[in-house]
Write a protein that binds this DNA or RNA. Sequence first.
DNA 1: CTTTTTGCTACAATTATTGTAGCATTACGC
DNA 2: GCGTAATGCTACAATAATTGTAGCAAAAAG
Lengths: 106, 106
Amino acid sequence: MAKQAASGKVRGSRSGRPVMALLDLLGRRWALRILWELREEPLTSRALRTACDEASPTVLQARLTELRGAGFVELGEGGGYALTALGRELCEMVMPLLRFAERWKR
Amino acid sequence: MAKQAASGKVRGSRSGRPVMALLDLLGRRWALRILWELREEPLTSRALRTACDEASPTVLQARLTELRGAGFVELGEGGGYALTALGRELCEMVMPLLRFAERWKR
DNA sequence: CTTTTTGCTACAATTATTGTAGCATTACGC
DNA sequence: GCGTAATGCTACAATAATTGTAGCAAAAAG
């Protein structure tokens, strides 16, 4: 399939369209969840792990690195992960999902 | 870890909070992308596959089944997958990502 | 100095995804 | 009718991602 391998590239970025790259980045495990958990306050890596149902630090770290690379998340000097201004904007778009999900229930 | 196995349950649903289940469902490969590709018009399985960079039918089928189970997507009688009313609502929330992504670029 | 917490990594085991091929069914062109 | 192409969908091995557990070095308490 000739996919990109190790590089920081994102699935769907082949199309060149930024949305695809974004959809791809957000469509990875725990990506949306991380943004969600950081929506109100910064969290340390441990606290974030706890918030994310004890997800393995391996993925969390991987996602965090990607999210940082994308400029949505940053590691504060005093420690702890937080949303950047851009990250907060993105999170604003995910927020409405709360009400929607409640209505969706299943 | 005592995770749910074969059932149609969703990761994150352990918390009982619908948002988590939704974030989990959408945080699977091609899930967001599928919603995105169906945003304007119904697509046949083949057309959808083409739209999704020739993603393997295995995942596409899996995601489609999940998305149908969640009530976001349906298979029309005349063939072809389409968003349900609920699915369109959900898609409305993903739409703003287009402009955001353009600005984000990377 | 000891203890705790930080961000982060190693590693094997398990799942998920990929890529390719193909099935049964339905619809079309001739 | 008969071939042809398209539909939704599945099988399967190969590959990649994720999980779970353990633990590291550095910094911050205590």
